[in-house]
Design a protein around this nucleic acid. Sequence first.
DNA 1: CAGTGGTCTAGACCACCGT
DNA 2: CGGTGGTCTAGACCACTGG
Lengths: 243, 243
Amino acid sequence: MNIVRYTSIANQVNEILRSRIRDGQYLPGMRLPSESDLSKKFGVSRATVRTVLARLNAEGIILRKQGDGTYINEHIQDVNTHLGGLWEFSRLIESSGYSASIRLLKVETRPAEPREAEHLQIQPEERVIWMQRLFYADDQPVILATNAIPERFIDPERATISAEYPIQKFLQEYCHKQVAYVILDMGATRVSEQAAEYLYLSAGQSLLNLNTNFYDRDNQPILCGQSYLNDTILRLRLVQTWG
Amino acid sequence: MNIVRYTSIANQVNEILRSRIRDGQYLPGMRLPSESDLSKKFGVSRATVRTVLARLNAEGIILRKQGDGTYINEHIQDVNTHLGGLWEFSRLIESSGYSASIRLLKVETRPAEPREAEHLQIQPEERVIWMQRLFYADDQPVILATNAIPERFIDPERATISAEYPIQKFLQEYCHKQVAYVILDMGATRVSEQAAEYLYLSAGQSLLNLNTNFYDRDNQPILCGQSYLNDTILRLRLVQTWG
DNA sequence: CAGTGGTCTAGACCACCGT
DNA sequence: CGGTGGTCTAGACCACTGG
């Protein structure tokens, strides 16, 4: 491993506050200590505390009232994702109260389909590695996900595919690529025959459709995927703060 | 008007940078001036510049590379919404390249339905004002939206309902309430008979279903709504940056 | 190596809220 | 009024990237 685990002060404060919320040390509706209190207790500057609180605020975990204080949002338990993590399906399933598992259905390398070639900005004849996975929530199949990655990105020394890897870890380990941003496209669709079979659904039922395109820091597409969620079991619930 | 328009330095810098991007002064893929450059040119501190760039980064408009520079994202044109604006339907329609208009279908006050009473945390017999609106994209109906608000929140002096108001402006003007956060619940659903009629759809087609709950700064629910989008016309497309 | 963004500090003043 | 969060500054050092 050549990765150095440097964790910033802000990240440490972040983790401490999050764990206090998880552990119930800070309960929904409670007022947090003031920024100056926290900065004194942690021995860091107020600016550092503020960057952490800004992040928690953006995720809707805390609410801040000028002239009053900072409060734990009473409605976080209603939420299973924030906007920064819509494509992390395992986390999504687990924060909905299920235990998550993944089954690898298919892996193959083949020439890119037109849709894939377009999204990945590659030649139509270029080969991609294509995989199809099924995500379970407590042994109920809930998400059918397919991903295509240009074959030349894959490190040839990593022969076997591990289905369990979250997609961003997969891209790091197998492609040495860092995801910089993702473009998501959401819609509704009627279940296809194949999806119906895997997800134990009857024909004609509706599914949430998520199309994802991952890019690295150089604006280069590295992955394109299509996913279908059974929203009768798994709803996407998220907070958006006003400012 | 008792609203004082105080605009922070950061907001002004924000607006300037955004307008430069809109005007094509900064083009997709271009490198921006460095943080120190910008802070010198604007006569503000580097920290201020950084808070602005952090916001643009969170919306996926710019990409930042340590040791290199800040670049305009080449793929912003693919996107029609950012994380903070999923429920602003008029903006959504317009940034998808259509012109938006709204038709008010129905307004009534009646006792809350059980679902509404639960979400609004009111007694079942309490009256709500209920309205149903249809959003058009270039004269095509694309979104059917219904909203319920406890009647006691409505300022009795404001008698007539203006359909054109964006929902947050409506809550400010008619209820003197400030939205602090929104909880969104997304799913897919087959079109109902009523919705099919309004949206010119055939039975059985799939729709994107957005349930929204608005809360004020005191965690009090002020509005609950259900919306159905025709995603064959209007896709939700958004960027999520990694960090 | 020089220059970029990333992190952090100490301190100042302001707007706002509850009392 | 005192205390809270909101804004802003000037300056420091670090991690990383490109040439």
